[in-house]
Design a protein around this nucleic acid. Sequence first.
DNA 1: TATTGTTATACTCTATAACTATA
DNA 2: TATAGTTATAGAGTATAACAATA
Lengths: 165, 165
Amino acid sequence: MGVQGESPTTSRGVQPPPNLGLVDGLVQLSAAVQAVVARVAAGADLSMAQARLLGVLRDRQPSMAQLAGLLELDKSSATGLIDRAERRGLVRRVDVPEDGRSFRVLLTAKGRRLTEELADEVARGVAALTDGLSEADRRKLAHLAGRVVVHDATARGIDLSTSTN
Amino acid sequence: MGVQGESPTTSRGVQPPPNLGLVDGLVQLSAAVQAVVARVAAGADLSMAQARLLGVLRDRQPSMAQLAGLLELDKSSATGLIDRAERRGLVRRVDVPEDGRSFRVLLTAKGRRLTEELADEVARGVAALTDGLSEADRRKLAHLAGRVVVHDATARGIDLSTSTN
DNA sequence: TATTGTTATACTCTATAACTATA
DNA sequence: TATAGTTATAGAGTATAACAATA
């Protein structure tokens, strides 16, 4: 819900609207950012799932189980995702000597090139969203977004300082 | 990309970082909002696609073609989506007298109840994201998000005042 | 026995192409 | 002919359950 242009809190008319503009604004802002990512991914003929995978592998070489955790997928879903990415030459499975059952997933050179390209495009696209803001407002928005993200991460017990595991 | 907790612009070290914090902040904020929606949808045993459908139908009774346009799907994809939603008793196809080929899609009573429930939960969840902010900061964030959304909509030629068509 | 990862299976979601019915 | 919608088909993405190999 609220992923298109609709307004999840509109037209309820219950109380003195508490954070009506806030919720709508955040939902629609989120949709706009997602749209940028989706467009960039589609431009490289990638699904959102594959794009997310590349993003996660940008600074990690996780095991399948860790990868599934990072993407919040079942391990069997991760198997399929990696199979398809491997077929496209974007990632590799590399044996880990310590454990004969496990291996690490990492980007190939081709995968890394593509990942950096996409990251650049996403950065440009997202930055372009704020074209209409003054530099001061952009700073303010960055600050507020950062605080929300940190607060949320803390609230759900995620340590942000440990992103490169 | 950037849909998880990663940082699409981190560790490039090219220039005096322009909007590094801004882009990362927005991408991660977007991910947090999407996660709220996804959690709420999953709680009602709905896919994101079905949740988006309900959101779009909240204040519209579009034709299939219009619906496909709103969801940015192929018309055949819309057919399947509506088929499944109809099977679950959430939406109905209603003949339009003026054109024997066409009809309108609308929420059933059950679908509307569920939609309003989900909208409430999403609103609460998204509002909770900003728990850590002062009231003044929440207002500021709402204002900035709104400006970005309007600017983006304008940039891609969308009229925001016509959401209830 | 427990863990790591894959396979088998079944759905949902999506697009392309071909089709039907109506305009 | 053109438009509205469906059907046929194919592939990606996802989950559950059962499995094999290793620890």
